[in-house]
Design a protein around this nucleic acid. Structure first.
Lengths: 203, 203
DNA sequence: ACCTGAACACCGTTCAAGT
DNA sequence: ACCTGAACACCGTTCAAGT
């Protein structure tokens, strides 16, 4: 989080911040050569570092992927916060803005999104990896509570409404990313589909 | 599709229907040891067959996974057809029944579902692998058309309504399967959430 | 036709050794 | 502390050879 000032740029070894570079290089490989090409050795080679260097920063390949996922969840949380900070006070607008953030994140960071949600070990869902994701979810629940307070949403468990809206947004993003939706949807179509999420505020 | 009668049960070699056994064994390994343990060699060993035997039936590992996915889509289509055949004529009930079939399939065949949708090469989405899936989608669109004809659904592009409902059902199933939903949901809760899908019939 | 063993290039991971 | 090369067990895939 804190942008640590790098005092020693070169240590006499190869890197000053190998850990973050490994995450970035992993994403670059996934993006350019597909997830199947992601090997620890390829990541190391891309950084001009020996094949065992990554083990100084990660316990193994799965641990590197967990870092990629955590990076994604942190970005999702940050963008949701920024979007909410820039949105007017009207609760329904804030609820929609938070939902838009989720879909926009998925489309803007498809590689992160896939690592976060596709075929990952269960630890991803429970452990600290998705901690930022849970915070973003709570932010979303908060907008629903505000809608209820001002009578813009029906009473009831707000987190249940959040689950419904999240399911819709997640399914839309996931299917779109996998090119499974019948027609190719342009940005406006995705925006229109996302707007449907307002349905869940009222029964 | 046609249940071919097996004339020669044993060929003097090891198997009579190795192809289907390979698909079944792959699913068993994914189920018992996780997707990371799925190797062609492990599949072969489980069937008491040499490590190169699978190449007589599949061009490679990816091809075996494609067969698993195709098997899943075929099951999804079959169960959707059977459900619709067993459902009354009222269009909204049929629309809901088709949506239920999708979620029920995901929960009943989680390993199939993951292979079908998680981190698979793009060919899965476009090629013949998902052909049965597209047919199931068309069945679903048909129930929406029937709702429109009888005034139970608003006019408009029925496949757009289908995309919305599918997104919701898919997101719900995917998040639930990954244990990402806040509370553990029992069957009744999932059923209640799935029922929300009726929302998409009317604007 | 269908199956086999040996071989190749590659991978994740470990470990003793370097600075 | 951080990095390295060599080594181990394993994997996908190829190929010449068996019946």
């Amino acid at each position: 989080m804190a942008t640590r000032r790098r005092i020693k740029v070169k240590t006499g070894y190869h890197h000053g911040n190998l850990r973050q570079d490994l995450v970035t290089a992993a994403l670059a490989i996934i993006n350019k050569q597909g997830p199947g090409a992601l090997t620890l050795r390829a990541v190391a080679k891309r950084l001009g570092v020996s094949q065992t260097a990554p083990y100084r920063h990660f316990v193994g390949k799965e641990s590197l992927l967990a870092a990629v996922a955590a990076d994604g969840f942190a970005t999702l949380l940050r963008e949701t916060e920024e979007t909410l900070a820039a949105t007017e006070a009207e609760p329904v607008a804030r609820y929609l803005a938070a939902a838009f953030s989720y879909v926009r994140f998925a489309l803007a960071y498809p590689d992160h999104f896939r690592v976060m949600y596709n075929e990952r070990p269960p630890e991803f869902s429970v452990g600290p990896v998705a901690e930022s994701g849970r915070k973003a979810f709570q932010l979303f629940v908060g907008t629903i509570v505000d809608c209820q307070k001002t009578g813009r949403a029906a009473a009831g468990d707000p987190s249940l409404t959040a689950v419904k809206a999240w399911s819709y947004a997640h399914g839309l993003a996931a299917l779109h990313l996998q090119r499974l939706l019948p027609r190719r949807l342009d940005d406006e179509a995705v925006r229109a589909l996302t707007r449907e999420i307002a349905r869940f505020l009222n029964p």
